[in-house]
Design a protein around this nucleic acid. Sequence first.
DNA 1: CCCTTAATGGAATATTTATTCCATTTTAAT
DNA 2: ATTAAAATGGAATAAATATTCCATTAAGGG
Lengths: 276, 276
Amino acid sequence: MSNVDASVAAPASVEEFHDRLAQIGGDLPKRLRQCADHIAANVDRIAVSTVAELAAGADVPPSALMRFCQILGFSGFSEMQKLFREAYAPGRPDYATRLKNLKQNGAGSPAALLAEFVEAGRQSLEALAKATDEAALARAVALLAGAGMLHVAGFRRAYPVSSYLAYVFEKMSVPAMLHDGAGKLDHRFALRAGDALIAITFAPYSEETLALATEARERGVAVVAITDHASSPLVPLSDAILTVPEVDFGAFRSLSATIALALALAVSVGSARDSA
Amino acid sequence: MSNVDASVAAPASVEEFHDRLAQIGGDLPKRLRQCADHIAANVDRIAVSTVAELAAGADVPPSALMRFCQILGFSGFSEMQKLFREAYAPGRPDYATRLKNLKQNGAGSPAALLAEFVEAGRQSLEALAKATDEAALARAVALLAGAGMLHVAGFRRAYPVSSYLAYVFEKMSVPAMLHDGAGKLDHRFALRAGDALIAITFAPYSEETLALATEARERGVAVVAITDHASSPLVPLSDAILTVPEVDFGAFRSLSATIALALALAVSVGSARDSA
DNA sequence: CCCTTAATGGAATATTTATTCCATTTTAAT
DNA sequence: ATTAAAATGGAATAAATATTCCATTAAGGG
C-alpha cells in the first residue's frame, strides 16, 4: 500500500471520514476494494452494525474489514463506529417525534395537517435531489443565461412559482417579464427573437401555458419547462425540461420542492449572466 | 404490575413501540419510571447505545433497564434494539450522498446550488415542525373560519405565498381576495366588518403590508400574520401570529417551509368552513 | 405489627463481538 | 525461476455486552 501512510490519524469527523474514503481512491487490492465500496454505499449502517454484518454485506471475511478500518486510520472497527455513533444526529427523531405529537391533535386538525404537509414537503425535496437531471438543469441555465428577455408563465398552482421566479430575477437584475394573465392577456407578442420562456405547469396542465409555449416554439423562442412528469404535454414543446416530483394527497400536492428548484434555477441564471 | 400483561407480545414496529410506551403510562414504580422517561426522550439512541449507556442516562442500574425492556414485551434489550436497528431508515444517507454528489459539480454550479437550496428547504421544514405554536395555528384557523371575506396581502418575496393561499382558498370555495398590488391599489376599502386579513411579510418588512394591516386593525378587521420573527413589526398589529423559520443565505432565504404552512393553513380553514 | 409481594441493585454467568495472530496464497520485483 | 512483499482467510483469544439470579430492601395489605 504505497499511497496510504500507516501513521495517518483517524478521521475526527464524518466529513473527514468521507474525504479519507475518497482520498484512498481506486488503488486497492480486491478485498479492500470491496470493503471501500460497501462502506461508501452503506455509511448509514456503520453505527448500527457489527463487523460481521458489514463484512457479510461486503462479501469479505471480518478480518478484511478490520484491515480496512486500520487503513482509514482507525485503530479498529470500534473506533470507527464510535465516530458514527457519536455523530448520530438526534435531530431527526426529534423531528419524527414532533410530527407524531402534532398528529395527535387528531386527523384533520390544523396541527395534524401541518405535520402531513411538512413531511410531504420534506419527502418532495429529497425526491427532487435524487431525481434531478443535472445535465438538463445545466442546459436550462445555459439557455436562459444566453437569452434576452426571460418570460415566465405559470397559472393557478404554478403561479406562486412563476411569481417567485420573477421576484428572484428582479433581485438579481435579470430582465424578466411575468405573464400574470391579468385582463386575460397572454402578451404573446412580447415573445421576441432571442428571448426565452419558462413555462410552468402541472397536471391537469393549463391550456394557457401550453398555448404560450406553442407560440414561443413557433416563434423560435427557447422554452424551458418546469413540469411534473416526463410525459407532460409541455415536454414536446420544450428545449430543456425540469421535472419535479411532489408528494400528492389527491386534492393537494406539496409545492415546496418546486419552490426550491425555482430558487436554484433563478440564482444559477442570475450568476451565469453576471459573469457573462 | 397490575396493568401490564406478562404475555403481551413485543412491539413489531417503531410505531407500535411508541403506542406501547404511551399505554404503559404513569403507574410505574420509581426506577421503571425513570427508564420510561429516559427511553421516551431518547428513542433515537436505542439503536446506537449499550444497556449500560442507556441505564446510565436514566440513572438506573442495567438490571432495571432489562426489566423495563421486558415490561414492554421484549425478551430483552437486544430484541428491542434489533427493532430500532432494522427500522433505521436507509433513505437519508442516499439523500446525503446525493447532495454531496450534486455539490461536487463545483461551488456556484446549478447542481450545487440546487443541493444547497434543497437542504435549506428541508431544514426549514423541520424547523417549522418543531417551532410551530399549535395554539396560534388553531387560533388563526378559528379567526379565518369565522370571517366573511379573507383578504390576502403579501408582496415581493411574500407574493408567491399569498398567491398560493388565494389559489388554495379558491379550490376550497373559500371567499378570498388577493391584494396583488396591481395599479398600486391597496383596496383598503374592501376591508369590511367581519372580514379577516392574512398579512404576510418578512424582513425587511413591506411598508404596504404593514400599512394594510394597520388599516385593518383600525377597522376592527382581524389580522392573521405570517412572518419570520416574534419581533416582526407585524406582530403588534395582529390577532394571531404564525412565525416561520427559513434558512437564510444572506441574499436569499428558503421559502419552502412557508409554502407548506400556507397549504396547511388554507386547507384547515377550508375544512373548518365546510363543517360550519 | 407481621406477612406477603414487589422492587431493587449488583455480581456472576453467558453470549456476542472485536481483535490479533499465523499459516497460506497471491502478486510483484529482480 | 526465485525471492520478497502483500494480500488473504480463519481460528484463537480478548474484550465488551447482555442476561440471569439472588439477597436485600421497600411497599402494601390484613
